[in-house]
Simulated scan of single mutants.
Amino acid sequence: MANDVYIQVNDRILAALEQGIIPWKRPWTGQLPTNYDSGKQYRGVNILTLGIAEMVRGYSSQYWLTFRQAQKHGGRIKRGEKATYIVFSDKKVREVEKEDGTKELKVYHFIKSFPVFNWDQTDGVPRKEAGAGLDPDRDLIEVCDVVLSKMPNPPAYRESGSSAYYMPKDDLVNLPPMDTFKTTDGYIATKFHEYGHSTGHKSRLNRSGVMGAVSFGGEEYSFEELVAELTSAYLCAGNGIDNTLENSSAYIQNWLSVLKDDKTMFLKASGKAAAAVEYICGKGAGATPAS
């Protein structure tokens, strides 16, 4: 079942890339996909899969609901409409017997998927007005600074040279000077990317792609790059930062190749990225380091 979910999500991402859509490069329409009943915005990979559906199918609403929710509100799903599947992770705790005969509690993590529909696919469900938009005149640098100020135990930061990178040995994020970037959004998206890498430091979430011996272009390198890409994408999505790319043909071909080779990579990287976002936003400081 888990493998089916991995393949299902991966195939959606590949299909978007093949259409020239980079799913983690702003696939949403300004308002994040939101649960119709709870009003909570979707997180992680669900931002991307629902955002892709909104773009490809031309949905105008940010609200999503299940078949039963539509019925509860006195409506129905229109005949012939196709669902979009979202995923969530859960866990079970079971008592297991060890080789020496003693017993211990073991935690099993698993993922599930289930279908949802956009409000545009319904009849008879009351319309909900879009949530309040972000202030177009806000200071984006201030927005970025506020996000990163919540990060416990942050890395050192400097602006110098002409390269953006994270150096685990010195626990240092380096960016070129801000005035060398074409746009403020591009500067912030790059900064979020490198801070995403920094969450993998041994003093934080301790990812092997950051702290281990990783070969450039190898599988673990690609995985860590995807974690940082998605971390940046999720932070940009939540704060209205435009992280689109220009001249992205080679970029798309690279990720098509990588994701075709490993069907599980995208969903696993998305989970690591969600944990990185939680850490940067000050909600995951107590998390147990994971490889």
Rank of each mutant, 00 (worst) to 15 (best):
I7F: 11
N10L: 05
D11N: 12
L14M: 12
A15W: 11
A15M: 14
K25W: 07
R26N: 09
V45I: 07
L48W: 08
I52Q: 11
Y59E: 12
Y59A: 13
L65K: 08
F67H: 07
E81A: 06
I86K: 08
V87M: 11
D90E: 08
K91S: 15
K92I: 09
V93M: 06
R94V: 10
E97M: 14
K98R: 10
K106G: 07
K106N: 12
V107R: 04
H109T: 12
I111A: 13
I111R: 08
K112Y: 14
V116H: 02
G124A: 14
K128G: 12
A132D: 14
G133A: 06
L134G: 09
V146H: 15
V147W: 12
S149W: 14
N153A: 06
S160Y: 03
G161R: 01
D170Q: 07
D171P: 08
L172M: 05
L172A: 09
L175H: 09
L175I: 05
M178G: 09
T180F: 11
T184H: 03
I188S: 04
A189L: 00
A189P: 00
F192N: 01
E194K: 00
H197G: 02
V210N: 08
G212F: 01
G217Q: 02
Y221S: 09
F223P: 07
E225H: 05
L226I: 03
A228N: 00
T244D: 09
N247T: 11
S248P: 09
V258H: 11
D261N: 15
T264E: 10
K268M: 08
A269S: 13
S270E: 01
A274M: 09
A274W: 04
E278P: 10
I280M: 03
C281Q: 13
G286L: 05
A287N: 13
P289Y: 05
